[in-house]
């Protein structure tokens, strides 16, 4: 049984101009020890689906799902008490802006101990020693001195390390990292990603990495789920995805990478991601797709078989060539 099992997750936001569907029928399955990357551009709903799972969405959001199971517990029907015992303990999350994710009014040590107080039956002294141990684990030099520091006294990279320490304080089974690195410099980004992978290997937890950077995906993930305009359009193992993308969107996205360029003109995807007011009728990618046929503009495609990367496409690609109808 997967650790995290989400089927047909839909999230709607109430806005001044009507409902906006941010996540549209997304399935997520994460097994113990998995490293799953969720890739997508802005507006693809990649963060929203995970925030929905954590119960961190604002009140304007409505969440619907056929199945929302974590570690055998149904999160949809769980009461606040049960939820709270899981979220923050078994599922932890780190965010993009390390500086603003820490409360500037309290010391690092206080915030670390606070996290443990909520979930772990530890004494004061045990909490203190565990805090030091955690900071050592995430590679912060002089942990004892750092515990007394305030967030503004640390750099962005160090803050992100503290956030990771807080996230793993309760030995979570699943760690969700929402764009943990783009606010950081390249050399620091490499350090943080390496740390996350090392921790994942050491503790055996599952890691969900939300990102838009294909380079980060290639170097960290085992499995990749590609999202577009709120839908999951493809899911494959990382090597297969980069070698043989099945959805035209994935294919075009990879082709647009400057490092894969063969000429000065990059093959680019025309147009923009559809927003609230211009959602196409059929396949959401159809207005930008080179391979789109009449059917794509009319009918909403369903996911292809796993052999074709679950591509949500009428005519999935194999080795860059569009196939006949699948369904």
């Amino acid at each position: 049984m997967p650790l995290l099992d989400v089927r047909n997750l839909c999230v709607d936001f109430r806005t001044a101009n009507g409902l906006f569907r941010a996540v549209d029928g997304v399935d997520v399955q994460v097994n113990v020890g998995d490293v799953l990357a969720i890739v997508g551009e802005s507006g693809s709903g990649k963060s929203v689906s995970m925030l929905a799972l954590m119960g961190l969405l604002p009140w304007t959001a409505t969440i619907n799902a056929d199945l929302l199971h974590f570690d055998g517990v149904d999160l949809a029907s769980a009461n606040t008490q049960q939820r709270r015992s899981i979220i923050g303990k078994d599922v932890a999350m780190i965010f993009q802006e390390p500086m603003s994710s820490l409360n500037p009014c309290f010391t690092i040590g206080f915030q670390l101990r606070e996290t443990m107080k909520a979930h772990l039956p530890l004494s004061r002294r045990e909490r203190q020693s565990r805090a030091i141990q955690l900071l050592e684990q995430v590679g912060l030099p002089e942990p004892e001195r750092r515990l007394k520091a305030f967030p503004h006294q640390l750099s962005g990279g160090m803050c992100q390390r503290v956030m990771i320490a807080m996230a793993i304080a309760c030995k979570p089974k699943l760690l969700i990292a929402d764009e943990p690195t783009p606010a950081l410099d390249v050399t620091i980004q490499a350090q943080i990603l390496e740390l996350l992978l090392d921790l994942q290997k050491d503790t055996g937890m599952a890691l969900v990495l939300i990102t838009h950077d294909m380079g980060v995906v290639a170097e960290t993930a085992q499995r990749v789920s590609v999202q577009y305009a709120g839908q999951k359009v493809e899911e494959q193992g990382v090597r297969d995805l980069f070698a043989n993308p099945h959805h035209p969107y994935t294919h075009a996205l990879l082709a647009a990478l400057p490092e894969r360029a063969t000429s000065r003109q990059l093959p680019s995807i025309p147009g923009v991601v559809p927003g609230q007011f211009d959602r196409p009728k059929g396949c959401l990618f159809s207005p930008r797709c080179t391979y789109a046929k009449d059917r794509c503009f009319q009918e909403v495609p369903v996911a292809a078989p796993p052999a074709l990367g679950l591509a949500r496409c009428h005519y999935p690609l194999v080795d860059g060539i569009a196939q006949r109808e699948v369904s």
């Binding site: 390249v186 350090q191 950077d213 380079g215 290639a218 170097e219 980069f242 894969r260």
Partner: peptide
């Protein structure tokens, strides 16, 4: 810097230079 930049190629051998500190 070059070795820290992620490359979108999962088959690439990773020989990364670990830079200490900030």
């Amino acid at each position: 810097l070059l070795s820290a930049t992620p490359v979108a190629d999962p088959t690439r051998e990773q020989t990364r230079i670990r830079l200490q500190g900030e």
